[in-house]
Amino acid sequence: MAKEFTVPPVIFPSGGNPAAAAGAHQRRHPVAPFQPPPNPSLPFMSFDIGSAASASFSAPAYGVVGPTFEDELPLLEELGINTRQIWRKTTSILNPLRLNPAIHEDADLSGPFIFITAFGLFQLLAGKLHFGIILGWVTVSSLFLYVVFNMLAGRNGNLDLYRCLSLVGYCMLPMVIFSAASLFVPEGGSVVFGMAAVFVLWSTRVCTRLLVELASCGDEHRGLIAYACCLVYMLFSLLVIF
C-alpha cells in the first residue's frame, strides 16, 4: 500500500515572487553587436512602433522639403528641346513675307535636326539614300556661309558658327517641302525644275534676311550673302531633282 506524503502549500507575498521580480529588473534586452544604443530623440533608431508611426506623419525635423514630382521640368526641356520655340520658328519660315527674325535670336539644333531627318526620309521614299550626304553638306554649307559672312563683315562681324548652323538648318524647311512634293511629280520634267526654282528662292530669301538681321555689318553685303545662300540651297535641290 502506497504511502501518502503531505506537502504544505507555498504562499507567496502580495508582491509576487521576489526572485522573479528581482530577475526581471536585472534582465537586459539583447543588443546587436557594434550597434549604438537607441537614441530616444530619434524615433526611427528605436523599436518604439508608436513613436515611429507618429514621427513618419509629422513634419521633417530639419525643415527641408525636397522638390516634388509636379515641380520637375518636362523631359524635353531638361534635354534642351523647346517644342514651342521650334514651332514658332517653323511657322515664321513658312510665311517668308512676314518673317520675324527676333524669334531666331536663340539658336538651337533641335529644329534643324528634325528638318534634316525629314529631308533624308523623303529622299529615302524616292529610293535615294542621302543621309550622310545631307549631313555633310549642311556642315560644309554652314562653314562656307560662316567664313564668307565674317570675311565680308571684317572685324565687326559677330556671326558665330553655332548660330549659322541653326539658321541654315531651319531654312532647310522649304527644301523638305520640295522633297515631299517631288514624290508626286514625274522626274525630269519642267514642273520639277520650276518647283526647284521657287523653293530655292524661298530658302535663299529667308536665310539671307536672318543672317543680315541677326548679325551686324551684313546689310551692306546683302547681295553677296544672298548669292552664297542661293548656291547652298541649289545643291540641295539637285539632290531632289537627280
Rank of each mutant, 00 (worst) to 15 (best):
residue 196 A to E: 03
residue 36 P to V: 11
residue 92 S to A: 12
residue 63 G to L: 08
residue 47 F to R: 12
residue 229 C to L: 00
residue 100 N to F: 01
residue 115 F to A: 14
residue 201 L to A: 15
residue 241 I to T: 08
residue 212 V to S: 06
residue 172 M to G: 12
residue 215 A to H: 06
residue 68 T to Q: 10
residue 211 L to N: 10
residue 23 G to N: 14
residue 146 Y to L: 12
residue 177 I to A: 07
residue 107 A to G: 12
residue 165 L to F: 14
residue 217 C to M: 10
residue 181 A to E: 08
residue 89 K to P: 01
residue 36 P to S: 15
residue 135 L to T: 15
residue 35 Q to Y: 01
residue 29 H to T: 08
residue 48 D to C: 04
residue 12 F to P: 01
residue 60 P to K: 06
residue 242 F to Y: 14
residue 23 G to E: 13
residue 40 P to K: 03
residue 204 T to S: 11
residue 175 M to N: 11
residue 231 L to Q: 09
residue 26 Q to F: 03
residue 164 C to S: 14
residue 150 N to C: 03
residue 14 S to I: 07
residue 142 S to H: 03
residue 214 L to C: 08
residue 166 S to V: 01
residue 119 F to H: 07
residue 92 S to E: 07
residue 235 L to Q: 15
residue 15 G to I: 09
residue 78 E to I: 11
residue 74 P to E: 10
residue 132 G to S: 15
residue 147 V to I: 13
residue 87 W to R: 10
residue 144 F to Q: 06
residue 153 A to Y: 02
residue 90 T to E: 05
residue 55 A to Q: 10
residue 206 V to P: 09
residue 127 G to K: 00
residue 141 S to M: 05
residue 47 F to W: 05
residue 195 M to R: 01
residue 218 G to C: 04
residue 235 L to C: 14
residue 10 V to T: 13
residue 173 L to M: 10
residue 30 P to N: 06
residue 30 P to M: 02
residue 144 F to V: 05
residue 60 P to T: 07
residue 71 D to P: 03
residue 59 A to Y: 07
residue 100 N to D: 13
residue 90 T to M: 07
residue 97 L to R: 14
residue 92 S to P: 02
residue 217 C to W: 07
residue 72 E to A: 15
residue 139 T to R: 15
residue 235 L to N: 14
residue 181 A to K: 09
residue 179 S to P: 09
residue 47 F to S: 14
residue 209 R to P: 00
residue 117 T to P: 00
residue 199 F to M: 11
residue 101 P to T: 05
residue 164 C to R: 04
residue 197 A to T: 11
residue 6 T to A: 06
residue 117 T to W: 04
residue 187 E to C: 00
residue 22 A to N: 05
residue 190 S to M: 09
residue 23 G to K: 12
residue 93 I to S: 05
residue 166 S to I: 02
residue 48 D to M: 00
residue 139 T to V: 14
residue 103 I to M: 05
residue 64 V to L: 11
residue 149 F to G: 03
residue 145 L to F: 01
residue 207 C to S: 12
residue 86 I to W: 02
residue 158 N to A: 05
residue 143 L to R: 08
residue 161 L to V: 13
residue 179 S to Q: 06
residue 110 S to V: 09
residue 24 A to R: 11
residue 23 G to H: 04
residue 145 L to M: 11
residue 53 A to S: 13
residue 150 N to V: 00
residue 130 H to C: 13
residue 44 F to L: 08
residue 223 G to M: 10
residue 18 P to H: 01
residue 140 V to T: 15
residue 224 L to E: 12
residue 108 D to H: 14
